[in-house]
């Protein structure tokens, strides 16, 4: 444990077993403050499982998980914002967007929901303030996704963890969303994002971690940005520390079928 200090998220030799099957094997992942890290890999490679285990949603069979250099039991949960893949299936009890977002203000030490004003502000950041009092059951998948993102944003997190946030969202919303994340990144927020397509995020990724069959097979520079992102008109704020390695691993289905 030489370098535990100053990490936002760290897993050491993590194994996850679900339903008698080992989904993750010996995963080491270190995310430092201010980094934007993409978790890539094919379906079933274990990327969602990794973020779920790192946030204590599912138990770890072996190894250690630390958030802000603390074990999960004592982690500063109010600094973590999580956006799951989708909203849980409706059970019929109507629930407004505002109610969902206010639930985002709870954490270990805070069992009472926050103010309505905070929730509305977070919804506004996702362009959903006008729908605050509408039941989420009546919203489209993309609108529900925006509510879930607002629920994470309302925490004003130092670590934002997103599980395929752009799946099923139209292009306009994606660009608003990416702009919001970029603003947070500039303000120092650390971002871990599970992606199928790196395209939308290409300009801000510092690092990519690629999983295959539950193991980390690459931890380094992200896949090269495609033409429109590397083009002269595109602001590329993050020069990479080292040139992308040509080890053949990055070109797998990571970019999601090279168009």
């Amino acid at each position: 444990m030489s370098q535990t200090s100053g990490t936002v998220l760290r897993t050491d030799g993590v194994d996850v077993v679900l339903g008698g099957r080992r989904i993750l094997m010996d995963v080491d992942l270190t995310v430092r403050p201010g980094e934007v890290v993409a978790l890539l890999g094919a379906n079933g490679s274990g990327k969602s499982t990794l973020v779920r285990a790192a946030l204590g949603v599912i138990p770890v069979a072996k190894g250690q998980v630390r958030l802000f250099d603390q074990p999960l039991r004592t982690a500063p949960w109010h600094r973590v914002g999580y956006v799951p893949q989708r909203m849980p299936a409706s059970t019929g009890v109507p629930t407004t967007a505002c109610e969902v977002v206010r639930a985002g203000l709870l954490s270990r030490r805070r069992l009472r929901p926050g103010s309505r004003a905070q929730a509305i502000a977070a919804l506004d950041a996702m362009g959903m303030a006008h729908r605050a009092n509408h039941p989420v059951q009546e919203m489209s998948g993309g609108q529900q996704q925006r509510v879930l993102i607002a629920r994470a944003l309302v925490r004003e997190p130092d670590l934002l963890v997103l599980d395929e946030p752009t799946t099923g969202i139209d292009l306009d919303t994606i660009s608003t969303f990416v702009a919001t994340i970029d603003r947070m990144r500039r303000a120092g927020t650390t971002v871990v994002v599970v992606l199928h397509e790196t395209e939308a995020f290409a300009s801000m990724l510092d690092r990519a971690v690629v999983l295959r069959h539950g193991r980390v097979v690459h931890d380094g520079p992200p896949p090269p940005a495609r033409a429109e992102h590397a083009g002269p008109q595109h602001e590329h704020a993050h020069p990479h520390a080292e040139p992308p390695r040509d080890d053949g691993l990055l070109d797998l289905e990571v970019i999601g079928g090279d168009g």
Binding site: G56, V57, L72, H78, Y82, P84, P88, A103
Partner: peptide, 22 residues
Amino acid sequence: GLRGALFAVSHDEEFARASGLP
């Protein structure tokens, strides 16, 4: 009194865990 927290676990248990709720 605890309806906020009980709502959170009832609506989305996964998110409640990832928020550090007991």
